[in-house]
C-alpha cells in the first residue's frame, strides 16, 4: 500500500488551474520531495491532499483511505510565514497544539501531553526555549517549533510545506536528522523543497511539479536535466549531474 495516492487531481483558483490532472504515488517509509518553481502548485498539492482547499476533480487516498478517516495519523507543518508569530504564546504551548487532535473537544492537555511536548522540543534541540515567547525565536527556531508540533501529533505520515525555507545551518541539520529518524521508524515524510542541490542527498524520491506532474520516481530516473528543464523552463542555473 502507498502512503499517498493521488489520481487526476485538478485544483483551480478563480477558474485558473493551479494543478492540472496530477497523478502521484508516494510509497511508505520514504522521504519524498516535491520540487518545482514558484507558482507550480506545490503547497496547493499538500493542501488539497489535506482537504484544506476544495478539489475541482480527482481523488486523494491517504494510507489507503479518504483523509477524514485517517486525520489522526497525519501530521502537518505549514509554511512558517502562514501564522502571526506575535501571537501571545510560548514554544511549548505551540507544540502542545500537536496533541489537540487526539484530545478532541473540550479536554485539556494534561501531564502526559506536556511530557510529550517537552520530549518533542528536545528532539529538535529546542528544550531550552520551551518558555520563550515565540516572537523572540529566530526563523530557524520557529521552524523547529513547528516541526516539534508535528512530532507531537505522533503521526504515520507528515506533510511539510518548505521546512528548510530560510533556516540556518544548525536548524537544517537538526531537521534532516529528525526526518531520517522518522524514516527509520517507518514513517513517511512528504516535503515541499526548494534547493535542487541538497534534494538528492536529503530525500529518497522526488516529484517534479509545474501545474502538471512532470516526472516522479527515484532521483536516478526522475531528476534528470531534461526533466528539470521541462519543470523550470529555461531559467535553471544549477543542474544535477
Amino acid at each position: 500500500m502507498n502512503a499517498v495516492e493521488i489520481r487526476d487531481l485538478t485544483v483551480a483558483y478563480d477558474e485558473n488551474p493551479v494543478l492540472w490532472d496530477v497523478d502521484l504515488d508516494i510509497p511508505m517509509s520514504t522521504l519524498f520531495a516535491i520540487i518545482g518553481p514558484n507558482g507550480a502548485g506545490k503547497s496547493t498539492l499538500i493542501k488539497a491532499a489535506l482537504d484544506l482547499i476544495p478539489r475541482a476533480a480527482g481523488t486523494v487516498r491517504i494510507l489507503g483511505k479518504p483523509y477524514r478517516e485517517v486525520r489522526k495519523k497525519v501530521g502537518y507543518v505549514p509554511q512558517r510565514g502562514s501564522v502571526d508569530w506575535d501571537f501571545p504564546t510560548d514554544a511549548l504551548d505551540v507544540v502542545l497544539m500537536g496533541t489537540y487532535g487526539r484530545l478532541g473537544w473540550i479536554r485539556k492537555p494534561g501531564r502526559a501531553e506536556h511530557e510529550l511536548a517537552m520530549h518533542c522540543l528536545e528532539t529538535v534541540g529546542m528544550a531550552d526555549f520551551a518558555h520563550r515567547q515565540i516572537s523572540q525565536l529566530s526563523g530557524g527556531q520557529q521552524q523547529r517549533v513547528f516541526l516539534a508540533r508535528a512530532l507531537a501529533q505522533e503521526a504515520e505520515l507528515y506533510f511539510m510545506d518548505e521546512p528548510f525555507a530560510g533556516v540556518d545551518a544548525t536548524t537544517e541539520r537538526a531537521i534532516i536528522d529528525v526526518l531520517r529518524e522518522l524514516r527509520a521508524k517507518g514513517k513517511t515524510v512528504v516535503a515541499v523543497h526548494h534547493d535542487l542541490e541538497s534534494a538528492p542527498t536529503y530525500f529518497d524520491r522526488v516529484a517534479l511539479l509545474n501545474v502538471r506532474m512532470i516526472a516522479t520516481g527515484d532521483f536516478e530516473t526522475a531528476f534528470t536535466q531534461e526533466n528539470l528543464v521541462k519543470t523550470y523552463g529555461g531559467r535553471i542555473a544549477v543542474l544535477a549531474k
Binding site: L50, D51, K72, Y76, P78, Y100, G101, R149
Partner: peptide
C-alpha cells in the same frame, strides 16, 4: 486564532 489551517488539518 493562531493557526486556522493547522486547526482544520487536525479536524477542528
Amino acid at each position: 486564532s493562531f493557526d486556522p489551517e493547522f486547526a482544520q488539518s487536525i479536524s477542528i
